[in-house]
């Protein structure tokens, strides 16, 4: 078997799949223990005789906590394996893209497939479940990146660009490279095959990295945009970011935001509530002057109407 990068990647993936396979029954075992612990607690507290001591209850609680922690550890391990597999695949994809870049062998992905990929990637970026007292890290849910953060190659970003039609908008893009000298990103429009201009060079301040992790509303609600906050979000069915109001934050980690997009075609000025994944909801960046307001959805993100905004943000 040739020792190619592909083979190595496949090998690595296989190893992780196997580990995952072993982890699942172990998780089941821990779950069983947890359930037993809880039923012991239940039977003690619901004992008809009464006279339960708080010490005993406390110790039962503590046992349950320890058991749950063991369970949690294993689940985290399993999820880590899945993340690793995804990373390996992504690496491989980037490498492939790099190789084909010069070969002018453009990977042709149809829009439908591309959109499907966007949907799955939104669902499969890792879920952040904080431990007690832990602060959600940057790029988890609504937590923005640190100011000196530089998005990695292959990462998804929102970038302020002037498209082939001359409109300036926030598009969904993928980082190709970062030019340190000029503080600029080279980015690819996610729909570069369909759009005329595939690659842009934009300054760092016109690029907003998308979250790398989803926040769990049940454990880390502080990492979500609260109701009524102003955001930028990918309008369903498009690859552009527009201004929106949060109607409802997600209730569970699998849920989406319900957003009201700014749209002057509606009498209230907002669209009806639309679902958007956590991954495609980012902070509304500029407070710059509002430009001309077009009625078209494409131009709804009119805050991005000129470079001045970007320049302002860069300062």
């Amino acid at each position: 078997m040739p020792f190619t990068a592909d083979a190595v990647a496949a090998q690595q993936v296989q190893e992780r799949l196997k580990a995952l396979q072993q982890l699942v029954p172990e998780i089941e075992k821990k779950r069983h223990i947890c359930e037993q612990g809880l039923s012991a607690l239940q039977s003690y507290t619901h004992d008809e005789k009464g006279g339960q001591s708080s010490q005993k209850i406390k110790s039962l609680y503590k046992t349950c906590v320890v058991q749950a922690e063991h369970e949690e550890d294993l689940i985290r391990k399993a999820l880590q394996k899945i993340t690793e597999i995804r990373n390996i695949k992504n690496e491989r994809r980037i490498q492939m893209a790099f190789q084909t870049r010069f070969a002018s062998n453009k990977e042709s992905v149809r829009k439908g497939i591309r959109m499907r990929m966007l949907y799955t990637s939104a669902n499969t970026i890792p879920l952040y479940v904080g431990k007690l007292g832990e602060k959600p890290p940057p790029l988890c849910g609504a937590i923005p990146a640190e100011s000196n953060y530089i998005a990695k190659v292959g990462d998804m970003v929102a970038a302020l660009v002037k498209n082939h039609e001359g409109d300036i908008e926030w598009i969904l893009a993928e980082v190709v490279s970062y030019i340190h000298g000029s503080n600029k990103y080279e980015i690819d429009d996610i729909l570069k095959e369909q759009n005329q201009i595939g690659r842009y060079t934009v300054s760092k301040c016109k690029v907003i990295p998308l979250p790398l992790m989803r926040a769990n509303p049940k454990t880390d609600p502080q990492a979500l945009f609260p109701q009524g906050s102003l955001v930028m979000a990918l309008f369903p069915g498009t690859t552009c970011f527009y201004k929106a109001l949060v109607d409802k934050p997600p209730a569970t980690h699998a849920d989406e935001y319900q957003l009201l997009f700014e749209d002057l075609t509606y009498p209230e000025g907002y669209s009806p509530s639309l679902p958007v994944f956590q991954r495609y909801v980012i902070v509304y960046k500029t407070k710059g002057k509002q430009g001309h307001k077009s009625s078209s959805l494409q131009n709804a993100a009119s805050m991005a109407d000129d470079d001045a905004i970007g320049a302002e943000a860069c300062k």
Binding site: C64, E72, I75, L127
Partner: peptide
């Protein structure tokens, strides 16, 4: 797995 993780994390918080 995420469902399980979330549940157990919430459970730990509840128990604590």
């Amino acid at each position: 797995l995420e469902k399980l993780l979330s549940t157990s994390a919430v459970r730990i918080r509840y128990l604590l």
